Amino acid sequence: MSDRGFLEKLLDGVSVEWKLLGDEDLFEVANRGRSPVKASLRVAGQTPYYGANNIQDYVDGHTHEGEYVLIAEDGSASLENYSIQYATGKFWANNHVHVLRGQQNVNTRYLFHYLCIVNFVPFLTGGGRAKLTKGQLVQIPAPIPCPEDPEKSLAIQAEIVRILDSFTELTAELTAELTAELKVRKQQYNHYRDQLLSFEDSDVEWKTLVEVADFRRGTAITKKQTIEGDIPVVANGPVPTYTHGEHNREGETVVIARSGAYAGYVSYWNEPIFLTDAFSVHPHDGVLKPRFVYYLLQNKQDQIHAMKKGAGVPHVRVKEVELYDVPVPSMKEQDRIVAILDKFDTLTTSLSEGLPREIKLRQQQYEYYRDLLLSFPKPEEAA
Rank of each mutant, 00 (worst) to 15 (best):
A130V: 01
P147F: 12
K183Y: 13
H191E: 05
F112W: 13
K90M: 06
I84E: 01
Q103L: 13
H96N: 09
N95A: 11
S83E: 08
R216E: 03
A87E: 01
T168L: 04
R129C: 01
T88A: 02
T208K: 07
P122Q: 14
A130S: 00
L79P: 02
G127T: 12
T125V: 10
D149I: 02
Q136M: 11
G128C: 02
Q104G: 04
Y82S: 11
Q139G: 12
V99W: 02
L196C: 13
R162W: 13
Q195M: 06
L197M: 03
N94Q: 09
I221R: 07
I117A: 15
L137M: 11
C146F: 00
E177L: 00
L111S: 06
A155G: 11
L124T: 03
D149S: 11
W206M: 14
A220W: 00
E205P: 00
E151W: 07
S166D: 10
S166F: 00
V121D: 10
I144K: 02
Y110T: 08
T222N: 05
Q195T: 09
N105L: 06
T222C: 03
Y110S: 09
G128P: 01
A176S: 13
T125S: 07
I117Q: 15
A142T: 12
N94Y: 04
L79D: 02
W206P: 15
K186Y: 11
N119P: 04
L79I: 07
D165C: 04
P141I: 14
I160F: 07
K152V: 12
R109G: 02
R109K: 14
L115G: 03
T222V: 08
L182R: 07
N95V: 13
T125G: 01
S202Q: 13
K131D: 10
A176E: 05
T219M: 08
N94S: 11
G89R: 05
S198K: 12
Q188W: 10
V210G: 00
P143Y: 12
Y189T: 10
R217K: 11
K131M: 06
T88N: 07
S198L: 04
T125P: 06
K134T: 15
H191P: 03
D203N: 14
K207A: 15
S198V: 00
Q195L: 06
